[in-house]
Computed example of a mutant assay.
Amino acid sequence: MSGGWLDGYAVLITGGGAGLGRAVTERFLAEGASVTVFGRDKDQLDETVAAAPDPSRIHAVTGDVRDSERLHAAVAETVERFGKLDTLVANAGVWDYQRRLTRLGAEQLDTAFDEIFSINVKGYLLAAEAAWRELVKTRGSIVMTLSNASFYVNGGGPLYTASKHACLGLMRELAYELAPKVRVNGVACGGMNTDLRGPESLALGDRSISASFAKKGPDSAPPLIPLHDSSTDPRDFTGPYVLLAARDQSGPITGHAISVDGGIGVRGFAHAAGGDDL
């Protein structure tokens, strides 16, 4: 492949074996990059590698984003395999399925907070710590998967929303700390038909958003999203990742979040309050 925006790039993508992470992996490969996919599920990673058009440009590392040692191993293997690291895509995460405070007991809240923040926030920070030295060498970039919940309420429950607000702040802080050598940006995605799972601490580890879409039927749409008809496939969200990774296309951009949420910011108000039934 030649002529893509990421031709010759070496990229590490956490959560790259399924859902949005896999869609970004496939898009980056199509744009000419070599990609290391990192994730917990070896079978998913193996499927992603097997589906790649050029086996020489994809590598898989099994691990958990809460494990700094495995993240350092992924960075080292990327450099060993592809010679460098140009971009880290911090993407692995879990959703709380809008579990409201009033539906969480104290013990559930305690354990679910630790799990969601350790994956969604600490996982990004540990990945950045593992990668920044190599990214300085290439004057590379970090692209974080954010969410409409990084800006607006009701994109999740209090745990997910707080974690994604934290990721927005983390992205901005790292953009300051790593400048001028490394650019740090985010893609704030909206609802999509993907394999995003819930926290195991709430017995939601096997629940997938895509299964929920299937139950609603092909003609149903996420509510109150102006462009809902074009915001359901993860592949529709991958363009901004390419833009932010590509030096020639976004060299002056850092500390910025691109909202790719189907127009949630212009949806208007549906309800004055969420707790009228308390």
Rank of each mutant, 00 (worst) to 15 (best):
A246S: 15
A246H: 05
A246E: 01
A246D: 06
R247P: 04
R247L: 03
R247K: 15
R247Y: 05
R247C: 02
D248W: 03
D248E: 15
D248T: 03
D248F: 01
D248N: 06
D248V: 00
D248Q: 07
Q249W: 14
S250V: 05
G251H: 05
P252R: 01
P252V: 00
P252K: 00
I253N: 02
I253A: 02
I253C: 05
T254A: 03
G255Y: 01
G255H: 01
H256A: 07
H256P: 01
H256C: 05
H256K: 06
H256S: 07
A257S: 15
A257G: 09
A257D: 08
I258E: 07
I258K: 06
S259D: 14
S259L: 15
S259F: 10
V260S: 11
V260I: 12
V260L: 09
D261T: 11
D261Y: 06
D261H: 06
D261M: 05
D261A: 06
D261S: 08
D261E: 15
G262T: 04
G262S: 04
G262Q: 01
I264E: 03
I264W: 08
I264S: 04
I264Y: 08
I264N: 00
G265Y: 13
G265R: 12
G265C: 09
G265F: 13
G265D: 11
G265K: 09
V266G: 08
V266D: 09
V266M: 12
V266E: 10
R267M: 07
R267F: 08
R267H: 09
R267Y: 07
R267A: 15
R267D: 06
G268M: 11
G268Q: 13
A270D: 10
A270W: 11
A270Q: 13
A270S: 10
H271M: 13
A272V: 14
A272H: 12
A272C: 09
A272R: 14
A273T: 15
A273H: 12
A273R: 15
A273Q: 13
G274R: 01
G275E: 14
G275D: 15
G275L: 11
D276S: 13
D276A: 12
